[in-house]
Deep mutational scan, measured.
Amino acid sequence: MEQGTVKWFNAEKGSGFIERENGDDVFVHFSAIQGDGFKSLDEGQAVTFDVEEGQRGPQAANVQKA
């Protein structure tokens, strides 16, 4: 798993970007967020995640709040 920080997340659209510790920013969709309840992330929040190849390039998967 990688570690990173939420660069921004739009709760209305359900997507945003995570700033990786090593590498380019990666797209995140709300469906990749693990946990119960409303799936959203806050700017500056620390997260851990896997990276998968999506239709438009790398994207975060199995996102967990650190």
Rank of each mutant, 00 (worst) to 15 (best):
Q45V: 10
Q45R: 04
P58H: 07
G23Y: 05
V51N: 02
Q34Y: 09
I18W: 01
K39V: 08
E12F: 12
F17V: 09
R56I: 08
G44P: 01
W8H: 05
N10A: 05
Q3N: 12
I18A: 00
N10E: 07
G23M: 08
E21C: 15
Q3L: 12
V28I: 08
G14A: 02
N22A: 09
G54F: 06
A60E: 03
Q59S: 07
I33W: 00
E2H: 15
E12G: 10
A61V: 14
E2P: 05
R20V: 08
E19Y: 12
F38A: 07
G23T: 03
F17I: 10
E53P: 10
T48D: 03
N22G: 10
I33F: 04
D50T: 14
G14Y: 01
E52Y: 14
F27R: 02
D50N: 14
E12P: 02
Q59N: 05
F49A: 02
G35D: 08
E53H: 12
A60I: 01
T48Y: 13
D25S: 10
D42M: 15
V51P: 04
A11Q: 13
V26E: 00
D50M: 13
Q34A: 11
A60Q: 00
Q55L: 14
D42R: 15
V26W: 03
S15E: 12
V6E: 06
A32G: 08
A32V: 06
F49D: 02
G37E: 06
F30K: 07
N10I: 04
G4L: 00
Q59C: 07
F9S: 03
V26A: 00
K7I: 07
K65G: 08
K7S: 03
F49H: 02
F27A: 03
N62F: 03
E21W: 11
Q45F: 04
M1P: 12
D24F: 10
G16D: 01
N10G: 06
G37L: 05
K7Q: 04
D42T: 15
I18P: 01
E21Y: 10
V26M: 05
N10M: 01
T48V: 11
A46V: 13
F17M: 10
F38C: 12
E19H: 13
G4Y: 00
P58E: 05
E21A: 13
D24R: 13
G54A: 07
E43H: 14
D36W: 09
F38D: 08
Q59A: 07
A66F: 10
G4T: 00
R56G: 10
Q34N: 11
S40W: 14
F9E: 06
V47S: 02
E53D: 11
D50G: 07
F30T: 06
S40C: 15
E21G: 09
R56M: 10
G54E: 04
G14E: 02
I33E: 04
G4C: 06
E52H: 11
K39P: 07
G57R: 06
A66R: 12
N22Q: 10
Q55V: 14
F30N: 05
A46P: 11
G37W: 05
Q45T: 10
D25P: 08
N62C: 06
K7D: 06
G37S: 05
F27K: 04
E2W: 15
T48I: 12
A46H: 14
S31P: 06
S15M: 15
V26K: 00
K65Y: 09
F49V: 03
G57Y: 06
G57N: 05
N62S: 05
Q59W: 09
Q59T: 08
Q3M: 13
K65P: 11
D36P: 12
F17E: 04
F9T: 03
N22C: 13
R20Q: 06
F38W: 15
K13L: 11
H29D: 07
Q59Y: 14
F9L: 04
Q34F: 10
A11N: 11
Q64N: 11
E52I: 15
E21S: 12
G44W: 03
T5A: 03
E43D: 09
V28W: 03
Q34M: 13
A46E: 10
F49G: 02
F17T: 04
M1Q: 15
A11R: 14
A11Y: 11
D50V: 14
G16W: 03
R20I: 07
S40Y: 13
E12Q: 13
A60Y: 02
G44S: 03
G35E: 10
Q34S: 11
N22D: 10
A32C: 05
V47H: 00
E2R: 09
Q45M: 11
V63K: 00
A60P: 02
A11D: 08
A11P: 13
A32W: 01
A11L: 08
E19S: 14
E21R: 11
D42Q: 15
L41F: 04
D24P: 15
N22M: 09
G16A: 02
E52T: 12
